[in-house]
Nucleic acid binder design. Sequence first.
DNA 1: CGCCTAATTGACAATGATTCTCATTTCCGT
DNA 2: ACGGAAATGAGAATCATTGTCAATTAGGCG
Lengths: 129, 129
Amino acid sequence: MTEAVRRQTRQQAAVLAALDAAAEFVSAQQLHSRLRDQGASVGLATVYRTLTALAAQDEVDVLRTDDGEAVYRRCASDEHHHHLVCRVCGRAVEVDGPAVEDWAARVSAAHGFRDVRHTLEIFGTCDRC
Amino acid sequence: MTEAVRRQTRQQAAVLAALDAAAEFVSAQQLHSRLRDQGASVGLATVYRTLTALAAQDEVDVLRTDDGEAVYRRCASDEHHHHLVCRVCGRAVEVDGPAVEDWAARVSAAHGFRDVRHTLEIFGTCDRC
DNA sequence: CGCCTAATTGACAATGATTCTCATTTCCGT
DNA sequence: ACGGAAATGAGAATCATTGTCAATTAGGCG
Ligand SMILES: [Mn+2]
Ligand SMILES: [Mn+2]
Ligand SMILES: [Zn+2]
Ligand SMILES: [Zn+2]
């Protein structure tokens, strides 16, 4: 598998900047309109493509809202971790749990599952809401 | 809030039966075509409505595939639990982890989150695949 | 039993997120 | 500057899911 050759474009930089400016998980559509509002207009397809590429490189985290929409966030930690997400304001707290990782590995092995990956998110109402 | 008055219809019975016959997580569309194949044809909208209702009553579990599609499963356990899902054949194993539940409760409380709920699924390749 | 009526159904349209197309523009190594 | 590959974007296409609404049906009541 050959390495992806990636160019430096103002559009991708703008998407990254917009992501960095957001504390919450945001959708591609939201990012697109925020970019449009602040003048740095970027095509919707490009926003989708950039987010997909960033997610593939683990530069951003992705999760699905209850209605299946994909939302993205640039996390402070680049290690594997999970989130505490406020379902009112969208604020996210990064958390990790070694005990959970162990448990997942153990139960996967016990049932003969290979190439495992897991998703774990906690949704609730944060103390500011 | 008034209690929902629910009638007994062949359509809903058929959806439930089709769910019981499936060992894997299936989408509304899949159930719809399976029902059609086996003769017990049920309208697509009705399949969606029935699945939504069943999920609301916790009669079925729902999760989202990587591409955001909702898939449903009638689980043996009616207790809170999680799944080991084969991303090749779709087979699911029900698992639970008290340690995980404790961790989720602890980390939620530590950050002042209320009314918390969590999602946790493990995806991998099962030993038969 | 038949009746009545509200719940349910289903064909079809509408919605909305995501992906595809493809002509045009933009990097970037030479 | 040049050339070609990569990236972009406007719009069309896809596709799961939801809404509409007229026709059907479950089930309580007389
Ligand atoms: Mn983990
Ligand atoms: Mn749990
Ligand atoms: Zn909040
Ligand atoms: Zn399998």
